[in-house]
């Protein structure tokens, strides 16, 4: 039987990266997003009417299609070496989080210890990307993590509802920064967003970003309250325009929190924004991600939607607490060849 003789007729043409000008010419809705962020250039803030026109000019999201695509990617089979790579990658992307009314300095200190060395039996693993706490516990975390590469992330801006004046939201942020937070997780004003007041949402983000300066700003869209994928896409673009370094799905206090399709829409947004501006914005999926299987599905999504360049702790984060232990147990299973019990890993 003849060996296949099929050859490409022409050599594959490498993709010419589209220029921002080219993209805008093709899709004028992108124009306001291409320049400096609003945090960098407050004078550039467009009117609410202009913002509305731009956001509504973004291509629509078809809910059935996006859920189907997410389900298809979730069926990828990640085994053996790929699973081992995925697990260590996921560990390095975790924002180990405790956001409870009952948080104490003791709880935060043990979480910090876990963040630096997740598994004492496996010193090659870790540390995680950051520890995420409320502003009043930032100082405790900063002390506990001194000398380690682990970031201290603080939620701020009247987390989780954000229902406070800009003055209070900024004061909350300033407290966290003063205590030494190196990353800020802010919430957007969902009420303003749903009322169509995009300018207010953008102005708040820009104001908080100016306060943060070089400190990484993660903007929480709380997609469970935005409800539609079109809203998620618009909120993502609005946040990036305002100056977000990372866009984050959820506070973890509202169900549904992170889902694969929502994260997919956000990954498309950072990919397209990067093509337009050259600025790489990260994505953080937070809330409800508890198992290794879930985490690997998110990594597949990052890999195939945004691309491998986002497979770093700067490009993608997990906001989670229970996930870490499942990753540790799965990693031990790969090394030992047998399942381990939850008793074999520390609580936090």
């Amino acid at each position: 039987m003849a060996v296949s003789t099929w050859q490409p007729i022409l050599a594959p043409v490498p993709d010419a990266a589209p220029t921002p000008a080219g993209l805008i010419a093709l899709h004028p809705g992108y124009a306001p997003f291409a320049g400096a962020t609003l945090a960098e250039d407050p004078a550039a803030t467009p009117s609410n009417a202009a913002l509305t026109a731009s956001l509504r000019g973004l291509p629509a999201v078809d809910a059935v299609g996006v859920e189907r695509r997410a389900a298809a990617l979730a069926s990828r089979s990640i085994k053996t070496t790929a699973k081992a790579q995925g697990i260590s990658l996921a560990v390095s992307m975790i924002d180990l989080t405790t956001l409870e009314g009952s948080d104490t300095p003791g709880k935060v200190r043990s979480l910090c210890r876990k963040a630096v060395l997740p598994d004492p039996a496996d010193p090659a693993l870790g540390p995680v990307a950051a520890v995420c706490v409320y502003p009043d516990l930032v100082a405790t975390a900063v002390t506990a993590l001194a000398g380690s590469p682990v970031h201290v992330a603080s939620v701020a801006t009247a987390f989780p509802a954000g229902r406070a004046s800009l003055r209070v939201r900024c004061a909350d942020t300033a407290d966290a920064l003063a205590a030494g937070a190196t990353e800020i997780d802010m919430v957007i004003d969902r009420g303003a967003f749903l009322a169509g007041d995009y300018a207010t949402v953008a102005a708040h983000i820009a104001e908080v970003k100016r306060l943060c300066g070089g400190v990484h700003l993660k903007v929480i869209l709380e997609t469970g309250e935005l409800a539609t994928y079109d809203n998620v896409r618009r909120a993502a673009w609005l946040s990036m325009l305002a100056g977000a370094d990372v866009i984050k799905t959820s506070t973890g206090k509202v169900a549904p929190a992170a889902t694969l399709p929502v994260t997919l829409v956000m990954l498309e947004a950072v990919r397209d924004y990067h093509a337009l501006t050259g600025r790489r914005v990260g994505v953080k999926a937070a809330g409800g991600i508890r198992t290794t299987k879930d985490a690997l599905r998110y990594l597949v999504l990052v890999n195939e939607i945004a691309g491998p360049d986002w497979l770093t702790p700067a490009g993608f984060r997990f906001g989670a607490s229970a996930l870490l232990n499942d990753l540790l147990m799965q990693r031990r299973r790969l090394t030992l060849g047998s399942y381990v019990s939850p008793r074999d890993v520390s609580v936090d």
Partner: peptide
């Protein structure tokens, strides 16, 4: 295999 970063997460054969 398209770049150095892909090595971070290469799908192993899953026959």
């Amino acid at each position: 295999t398209s770049g150095p970063t892909t090595a971070l997460f290469d799908y192993a054969p899953a026959p």
